[in-house]
Amino acid sequence: MGFSLKKLASGLLKTKENLVSKIKAAVGLHKKIDGALLDEIEEILISSDISVETSTAIIANLKEKVAQRGIDNSDEVFQLLRECLKDLFVDISTEPFFACNKKPYVIMIVGVNGTGKTTSIAKIARRFVNDGKKVTIAAADTFRAAAIDQLAIWADRVGCHLVKGQEGGDAAAVAYDSVQSAIARGDDVVIIDTAGRLHTKTNLMEELSKVKRVIKKAMPDAPHRTLLVLDGTTGQNALQQVEVFKKMLDIDGIIITKLDGTAKGGAVFSIVERYKLPVVLIGIGEQMDDLDEFKAHDFVEALFT
């Protein structure tokens, strides 16, 4: 995971302290794996920002394992839980994110307000540029004050091409232009920024699916990735966000940001359990190198070691 592992680890340490130490305390009070212990573990999972439904599903799996193997000593519950968490990732695509196989490879970035979309775009662009790719980024957030300027500054720092329109202008037109322009310039990657919007605003969500449709007019199989950016500090609402964005935009992957804080990123488990969507990238800081590819194994292990 590179140099930033430390940052992630220090953030996750808090998670570990909470999850592991809480479960330890619970296990200490129950010799046997019984309903009361499982209830407690379920609450511990919920209090790590894992959704209620997913926590229930994890516990169901745990119960099954307990029954199958005829285990009743509570000490073994750790090992079982670790397995259960890993089980969640079994069917999830692990296709490497930065291997782009289309030209241009078009990525559309969406999410609610302030989750870290624009910053994540800078980080992704940076990675591609470092890999020797030619990158265009599109300022299709024409709504928020100075959003275009923000992306322009990043384009400058990253060293990539920027396509922009007018503040208050047509977002879909900017997205369309960016793909056209990338094709004309022979660029490898296009990353499209969009305005943050709450998933509950139907008209704004519809506007976003229009942007997606219009991108297809410039390149029929684009966008090749539609990624939802989730704020790592978000609690149970993360799932509602995934639900609606998936329904409206058919997102195919998640970026979780701000994991350099003390937030637990518990949403990761809910997303894979409920929606089978891969978490592809994680944000671990405000600078353009503060990005990691998500590795399920490492993520779970970090919780238990």
Binding site: K14, S47, S48, D49, V112, G114, D231, T233, T234, G235, Q236, N237, A238, G261, T262, A263, K264, G266
Partner: peptide, 12 residues
């Protein structure tokens, strides 16, 4: 504070 904040709200 964002109304969507999860468990971490107390630390913050």
């Amino acid at each position: 504070a964002d109304a969507m904040t999860g468990q971490d709200a107390v630390n913050v």
